[in-house]
Amino acid sequence: MKREHDGPVALSVHEAGHLVIAHSQEALTVGESIWSDQGFTYTNVGSEADWTKPAEKVRSIAAQVAVAVAGGAAELVVHRGVLPEELTVEDVLAETGSIDFQLAQEWLALQRHDPSQDAIEAEVLDVFHLVAAALADRGTSALVSELADRLLARRRREENGTVRLGSTEPEVAALLAGARLPAEYPLTRTTTANLISVTTH
């Protein structure tokens, strides 16, 4: 979801970006993209990860971060056709919007007690670059556009209600099945080996 979206077309691409990246992440399950009657959008994402197991916890966090930044990356790459090279944190914040950026940040902060904000922002920047590069693939961009068109069409057919685009709808599922995307995006700046142990006595 992006508060400062540039209109319904950009917002539909933004949300389709979340849906496509969420579907590709092994650590996550994705339900549907929702466009609420109040004009807000989000994509329902879940995880069965066991947070008492460090590796599972890190994988699910990494996947959630990728999904969180995917909306902004899709707007940049698919909607505006820009191929990102050297983005700054300010650039990424402008693309994702503060809501998605802070969602990514919150997931990263759950890895350990208070990583540094510098490390968090660098990690978000790195993951954004990776996700944007993946979305820039011609086939993936076309997929995002196709899903965005479907979501927008539903919005226009029902302007005052809540509309949904479900990942298990047969036509949507068939489109998503053709996607070729990384199944995970590594974190390199905020992880620590010791994720669940503490000293006790």
């Binding site: 944190v89 300010e90 914040l93 503060s98 950026f101 802070q102 940040q105 902060a109 350990r112 007690h113 208070d114 990583p115 540094s116 904000q117 510098d118 490390a119 968090i120 922002e121 620590t192 010791n194 503490v198 000293t199 006790t200 006595h201």
Partner: peptide
């Protein structure tokens, strides 16, 4: 009851650019 000691933090997360 027992004492639980975590790791030292690396910093303090803020809102973006805060």
């Amino acid at each position: 009851a027992y004492v639980e000691v975590d790791e030292e933090s690396y910093g303090t997360p803020t809102a973006p650019e805060g």
